[in-house]
Design a protein around this nucleic acid. Structure first.
Length: 199
DNA sequence: CCCTGATTCGC
DNA sequence: GCGAATCAGG
């Protein structure tokens, strides 16, 4: 894959929206996040300093031999990084992100997704696709116990807590979310497709 | 361990 | 120009 004008535009747009390099790479396909980052730099649009801010003045840095330049100062470095507290027990079943798009836009950072505890596929009309996916996942889930839960294990409960037929998914979570990809799919339903037009 | 972006350097 | 390897921080 090469950086066609088209792809560069997508890159610019997504980067501008604050998407991570890996997300962009995933979206574009055929490139790694490194490639994306490399391109971003070459395009001159760096800044975002989400991570390390070495304060190195690249503008005047013609030679690595030069000592640190005190004149360089990150003027307005906005840092739109939202870190949802993982210990927030929000009784928010479904409906969190009204995302009209098939894939995840730049909404991830504004989703207050703490720890929705929703399972119970009761009155839910989730896409059969997603449900099927979940069922499939449950088969290969790690079936871990409560004690085995970590920040990176899917916390989706399976079975009946009142019986020994209960466990947690335990698969790798989608970063920033409490569940694996499959379960995130059913946990965060964009909106009910029901014909309830604004109640 | 997972992730993030930044930089370097051979291609 | 490109991007893997590496570095550095969270």
């Amino acid at each position: 894959m090469s950086w066609t004008d088209d792809r560069v535009e997508i890159l610019k747009k997504m980067w501008g929206e604050g998407q991570s390099a890996s997300q962009i790479a995933k979206e574009l396909g055929g490139v790694t996040r490194n490639a994306v980052i490399g391109k971003v730099h070459r395009l001159g649009l760096s800044n975002r300093t989400a991570t390390a801010a070495p304060a190195a003045a690249p503008a005047a840095a013609a030679k690595p031999e030069a000592k640190a330049n005190p004149a360089a100062k990150p003027a307005a470095a906005a840092k739109p990084k939202a870190e949802p507290a993982p210990e927030a027990a929000e009784p928010e079943p479904a409906e969190a992100a009204p995302a009209p798009r098939p894939n995840l836009p730049a909404r991830a950072k504004i989703i207050p997704a703490g720890q929705p505890l929703p399972p119970q596929p009761s009155a839910n009309e989730i896409s059969p696709e997603a449900l099927a996916k979940v069922s499939e996942v449950e088969k290969k889930s790690k079936k871990i116990g409560l004690m085995d839960l970590t920040e990176r294990t899917c916390k989706w409960p399976v079975g009946d807590p009142a019986t020994d037929d209960f466990w947690f998914c335990g698969l790798p979570v989608q970063q920033g979310k409490p569940y694996c990809e499959a379960h995130v799919g059913v946990a965060f339903q964009p909106m009910s497709a029901r014909r309830d037009r604004r109640r």
